[in-house]
Amino acid sequence: MRRPSARKRWSWRSQAFRGLLWQVVAVLLVGFAVWFLAHNTLENMRARGIQSGFDFLKGPAGFDIGESLIPYDALDPYWKAFLVGILNTLRVAIIGIGVATLFGTLLGIGRFSANAIVRGLCYAYTETFRNVPILLQLLFWYLVFTEVLPPVAEPVSVGPFLLSKAGFSFPWWVEGRWSVPAPGAFSMEGGASATPEFMAVLMGLVFYTSAFIGEIVRAGIAAVPKGQVEAASALGLPRGLQVRKVILPQALRVIIPPLTSQYLNITKNSSLAVAIGYPDVVSIANTSLNNTGRAVECISIIMLVYLVTSLSTALFMNWYNKRVAIQER
């Protein structure tokens, strides 16, 4: 290739020159926008006398938190309140991912059932739950727990599992033995209970996301060519082995990437907990924001927490995806 002459390189006709110019303009524009926003923010903060900085994290939070995985009380500092919130977010997201994957897989497989009723029910479930906003579903479940379910004294029971206004109670390993919950005067005694807030967020996330996961699993299974199953039958593999050795390994390759984004969605959608008062990181940040007025800091913390969780989930799932991908030799 002939090198363009110096004069040509610096003319409008040179693609390289125009490219350079575009980039300089773009960087300058973005730089100016950032400077403009930062400048205005500082001006506004000075005008309104807003203090800034993350030093408030060391001061006492002064508010109670409904549920916590670690010991916490109102005298503890803000950073500990945020830690409680982060743990609560992770707890509901991780349990939600587990249950939604299980449910969604069953739904996806159900779409291939030999039984027309099972097929129809799985389809109806998918279409119903993915076409109603998750916030609405969350509020709905919260209302079911707080208004429709019976009071603590007379819970709905399915075996040792109890549902009431106190939430969902189940047997749990306490002090070296299984403890079964029973209605007490004001709360459930024995076993372990999940609060109505936690249950509402969890159910909202699971019902909504499993509809999407079901669709992903269905598409993944449908992507395995029919000849593969026929070949497996011709070899005399029983149905269970066909699924395990032939269908799943091929379907997983199609399923994993969109499944990853559903896992990320569960984590991000758990932020809707703020609407019903489950103390996740967004609720804690919202309360802290109202108490201290440090909007920039509190919102940065929310974004940072989610960015870190999103990025690490994506990294893990990419690693797993590489493992199940076709090994080309």
Binding site: K268, V274, V282, I302, L307, S310
Partner: peptide, 8 residues
Amino acid sequence: VRGVPLVS
């Protein structure tokens, strides 16, 4: 943007 929730 895709790393943070709409709420934030």
